[in-house]
Every structure is written in C-alpha cells, then in structure tokens.
C-alpha cells in the first residue's frame, strides 16, 4: 500500500492587498510503506506547505492527498501519522511526561501500553531526567526531542517530520538519523523535509527536490550517487618512485590508463569523483533561479 499518495497538490495563498503567492504547483508524489523519503528544498520552496496540506492544517487549492489510503487531513488519516512540526511548540505548562500522556490518550492508547511507550521514548530521547519539569524550562533541542518522542509514542505507520534535525546538536542529529534508520528497518514510512543534503544521503531511499513550489526531481539516492560519477582521480607512480595525482574525465579514463601503463608508470589509485547530492541540489537551484529570473 502507498503510505503517501499526493496528486497534483497546489496551494495559492492570498495575502493582504490582494497579493497572491503560488506556494505549491501541481505536486504529485507517491511514497510506499517502508521507504525513507527526503523532501529537499531551500527555504520557502513549499516543503512545509506540502506537509501542512497533508496534515489538514491548510486546505490545498488544487489536488488531493491520501495517507495509507485515507484522505489526508481527516481524523482517520491522522491516526496513521506521527507528525513533527517545524520549530515545534507544545503546551509549555505541561511536563514532557504529561504531554506524551496527552498525545497517547488522543490516540486512545491503553494506559499500560502508553506508560511503557512513554518511558521508552523518554529514555531514547534522553529526556528521562527532565520528564517531570514543565516544557517551558526546556532548551530548544529538548523541545525538539519532545517532538520526536510524541511522534514515536503511538508507533504509527507513517512519520511526517518537518525539519527534524533543526535545533539539535551533533549528538542529537546522529540520534535522529539512528531513529529514522531503525524505523526503516521496522518497515515504517518516513517522509521528512530538510535543506541539508547530507542528512538525505545518509538515511533516505529516495529524494524529492522542491523548488519554487514545483517538484523538480524525484530520484533514488543510490542512483544519484552512482550516476553522479563525473571523473576520476588517478595516482601514478613514475620510475623515480614519485607519486603524482591526475584528474581525468570519465571518457578519457581508458586511454589515460593505457598510456600510463605503456609509459612504464604504475597506476597506484583510481578513485571516482562523484557529483554528490549537494552538487545536484545546487545545480538545480541555480538552474531554477536562472529560469525563474
């Protein structure tokens, strides 16, 4: 079953003085169960708008979306989802423990299961010692961790995370990546937005790149990584024993190696030079900026 099925999703915001912002234009995308999908785009690209449409926080102007086969934004669809908003805020007069209990009860979890999951989530996200303190006293990173804990507590099929690494220190970021990989192992669908390409490379199966409200590319991350070889770095040891590095394009590789061997030089190292996701992303952004201007 498709965890997410987005068809021709569009959103126009009408501002003051009849200003119109075309925030999202005909986005179509499907994400199957068990896949980690990275939703990449610069600030203002429309990532959060897409996610808010999925969660029913805003109404799309065109198109539709389903979550686990149920119309997005409905109570039934939300039962399948764990959602982490961008820069999350939670009732700050509650403690993390109370907030997680509140979330669990809205999902009608059994009290014993809720207690067990709450403890697991708090310990996993290193909030156990602070669990009884009001959230208003938490740091930004701790609030983000509460957000992740409330996403995990009811063990949904789909995780929609809006900038989950934002506000976290390197240890926290590593922990989130670990959690995402663990969810993947358990067959869960994780759909997360980010503008950090490294995060996508490390944990995602596929990536979608959104620019100016348009979905420019959807591709497997491993395909991008293998097809992105633009040339090779070759280390040659000559007859004097000196090593010299050469940059060779993909087309010239065979001829270059044959020439070196014929000259009596030794080829010590051949290392592919890849165009990584960041290069691809930046190239798309620059092309997009060029075409839009």
């Amino acid at each position: 079953m498709l965890a997410l099925d987005i068809q021709n999703l569009g959103k126009i915001f009408k501002g003051k003085k009849r200003q119109i912002v075309d925030a999202l234009q005909g986005v179509s995308l499907t994400v199957p169960e068990g896949e980690v999908f990275g939703f990449l785009g610069p600030n203002g690209a429309g990532k959060s708008t897409t996610i808010k449409c999925l969660m029913g926080l805003i109404r799309p102007t065109t198109g539709s979306a389903n979550i686990m086969g149920v119309a997005a934004g409905t109570e039934a669809s939300k039962r399948h989802v764990g959602y982490l908003p961008e820069n999350p805020a939670f009732y700050d007069y509650l403690s993390a423990e109370e907030y997680l209990s509140f979330v669990g009860r809205t999902f009608q979890m059994q009290e014993s299961l809720l207690q067990r999951r709450r403890e697991e989530a708090l310990k996993l996200l290193e909030l156990w010692d602070a669990r009884k303190r009001p959230i208003r006293g938490y740091s930004k990173g701790m609030v983000q961790r509460v957000g992740l804990a409330q996403v995990l507590i009811h063990d949904p099929s789909v995780y929609i995370l809006d900038e989950p690494m934002s506000g976290l220190d390197p240890i926290g970021r590593a922990l989130v990546k670990e959690i995402i990989l663990d969810l993947k192992k358990r067959g869960k669908c994780v759909f997360f937005s980010t503008h950090i390409t490294d995060d996508v490379e490390k944990v995602c199966d596929r990536v979608g790149i959104l620019l100016h409200g348009q979905l420019k590319l959807v591709e497997r991350v491993d395909t991008i990584m293998t097809q992105g070889i633009v040339g090779y770095q070759i280390r040659i040891r000559n007859s004097d024993g000196k090593s010299v590095d050469h940059q060779v394009t993909k087309d010239m590789l065979d001829g270059f190696i044959a020439g070196q061997v014929a000259s009596g030089n030794e080829v010590v190292l051949v290392e592919p030079r890849r165009k990584n996701l960041e290069d691809l992303f930046l190239a798309l952004v620059h092309n997009g900026a060029g075409s839009s201007s």
Binding site: M55, E75, N87
Partner: peptide
C-alpha cells in the same frame, strides 16, 4: 499565537 495548534490539530482530534 504560540503555535500549539500545529501539534494539537495534527493529532486525531477534529
């Protein structure tokens, strides 16, 4: 104002 609605309205609560 404090953005609590984002988290609460995304729960299965109409």
């Amino acid at each position: 104002e404090r953005r609590y609605t984002f988290s609460v309205l995304s729960l299965p609560v109409s």
